[in-house]
Design a protein around this nucleic acid. Sequence first.
RNA 1: GUGGUUGUAGCUCAGCUGGUUAGAGCGUCGGCUUGUGGUGCCGAAGGUCGCGGGUUCGAGCCCCGUCAGCCACCCCA
Length: 424
Amino acid sequence: MPADRNVMRAPKGMLDVLPPESARWIDVIERFASRAERFAYGLLLTPIVEHYEVFARVGETTDIVRKEMYEFVDRGGRRLALRPEGTAPVVRAFVQHRPPTPWKVWYLAPNFRAEQPQAGRYRQHWQLGAEVIGIDDPDIDVEVIELLWGFCHDLGLRDVRLLVNSMGDADSRARYREVLLAYWRAHEALLGDEMERAEANPLRILDSKRSDWLEMLERAPQLGEYLTDASAAHFERVQEGLRALGIPFEIAPRLVRGFDYYTSTVFELTSGALDTAQNAIGGGGRYDRLAEEMGGPAAPSIGFGSGIERLLLACDAEGVLPVPPPRLDAFVVDLVGVADTTRLLAELRESGLAADRAYGGRSPKKQFTAADRSGARWAVIVGPDEAKRGMVAVKDLRSDKPQCEVRREEIAAWLLTGKDEAHS
RNA sequence: GUGGUUGUAGCUCAGCUGGUUAGAGCGUCGGCUUGUGGUGCCGAAGGUCGCGGGUUCGAGCCCCGUCAGCCACCCCA
């Protein structure tokens, strides 16, 4: 990071992504889009801001809503908030437009949370996600998990753990909450200030990382023991499905996730290669009541979000998905300073080649230096001698093959052919 | 919000127990070569040492504050 003077800088916890690093982002996004489309999910774009109430529905006891939202009042006096998470806007769009179900969508969106930045945690982060609205079937749970799991595999990630759990239905949780709350009360001394949170949402204490709580947490009553028959059967079917696909998973009894809306199946992907505190690279679950809570029809649903910054951190840790090399085909070197150079460059680009040139009347030497740094495969040299004969010179910058001449009007086709041969 | 830690050129860093003109490597730009890059040689630009205050004859170095980065808690992607 540059030393801080009076220069402008990005807001705290928000990152710029510059080339060539940004090429990896294109890579990640394209791989996700490709897989999601193969799974028959369509892209959903929603506004970056929503009415405050859209996110308030996500839960009164979630920190993200309570104290981490970027809120503002617009000029019309409306209370708006920057999106802190991806699911609520999707459900809002669903209840607003009422598309036919099951509604399968994927998204790419920045999320904003006013929390303290640390490794793998930023105030703006990008999530790729997918949601299926309006269907309650363990098989769709499996499909959604498969989408996320396969995507991580597509990136080259191998050191990934899939954690699954079931939050049960409302009946399951009501019974469990009472038992759990009684347990917390028995440990009030250890919980201290957090007792208030335990009262408000007993489940939220379960996934704490505090080492002094470890023993208490391990001995806590488990949600799985309080599942209704229907919930247990659903969860069992999900596990069968994962086994059928050969996707390894671990049941994490204390995995409860951070949003109030979760019901039934919940899951999380963690990277074992990441030695930072924030090692979850994706997570989600069922939210069977959210659509109703937003004033829509009953629409049991499931989805997940996956943070691009963390995926890339995990890729770095595993040494996969390197920055792709520049894909420039040609660099035009102009030795004559004629308008035909401009025309030639335009022709190459229109024919589908990636091409560039130097500007500012650089010396041949500097132009070749620029050509080299551009990573281009060929230098196309427009020189006075060749021009008289209707030719251009072509130099292969990545080999020691002697320079050759090609007819001016055939250069684009010649390069395209050479490019194809290089790929085969 | 809480705690720890760091802050010297675009980047990575050096700078002795405070001592006078703050250095290196890489990168950038120019030259050796305006018809040939990658390696070589020469040179240049670029820093109010994060910012503010204090201590001192003197502060990049010490003290206080502040801002920012990093890391952790909380929580999450």
